[in-house]
Amino acid sequence: MKDTSLIQRKDGRVWNTSIVTMLIVYLCIPVAGTLAYSLCQEWQGTILPKGFTLKWYAEIFSDTRFLEAMGRSLLVSTITVVISLLIMIPTIFIIVLYYPKLERTLQILVLLPFAFPGVVAAVGLIKVYSSGPLAISGTIWILIGAYFIVVLPYVYQSTRNSLRTINAKDLMDAAEVLGASKVSAFHSVIVPNILPGVLTASLLSFSTILGEFVLANILVGGSYETIQIYLLSMMRVSGHSASAIILIFFVLVFVLSAIILKLGSWNSRTNVSKGKPKEEDR
């Protein structure tokens, strides 16, 4: 009995390892292919690429249109994320702690964007903002407006979880009994403690906006060219340059993910009561 179960377990490990290896290879192929394409002189009619070069990267970085597009994308993401945090953290805090009955409503409002794919959202937005008093389509403002809604679920989820793990209600009570007003308790006790968790959401939102295409394409298109729009037009001109852009974009996302991961582990280390106490009780 014991022997067979051991063999079974070993088989299981071989099976799981091969599945996961195949998965990694499969998921890496497109990335690897793009990387190879961005680093070769030529890849036409041959199985393997020919000639190593960095000239596509050099070209891209001296291309003002690329730099401008990148700048626009970074600008939109930064503004949106900052506004979103400034508005959403107090909002979520107030509703969770003082109006818990409204939380269900907040949840629905905030999670609705998950239900509406980009195209659907774009239809309503273009209808309202392409003419009339608020004709902001084609400008950065409509993107900020729309992306704020797009990143709501991330910001909500992480702020909510952070408030829960730090036991915000008790911290507020403690601070108030100790003589703090609500506002000073919020900024000296609540904000510093939820910041790591909220930062994770910001980075996630940031990379989501950098990769967003549908809304950018339908709402502003060429009149406010973001990195994704530029990439698509570049794809039709030079494959090598396009692949270099993709790689740069991907490295950026990779770095952001690495930061998220680091923050995540730092978060769990500083958690109030979850971590193993370092000192033993006498």
Binding site: N167, D170, A174, V189, N193, T270, V272
Partner: peptide, 9 residues
């Protein structure tokens, strides 16, 4: 408080 409610930061 029961949960101590110490300020973690």
């Amino acid at each position: 408080f029961q949960s101590y409610a110490l300020f973690p930061n």
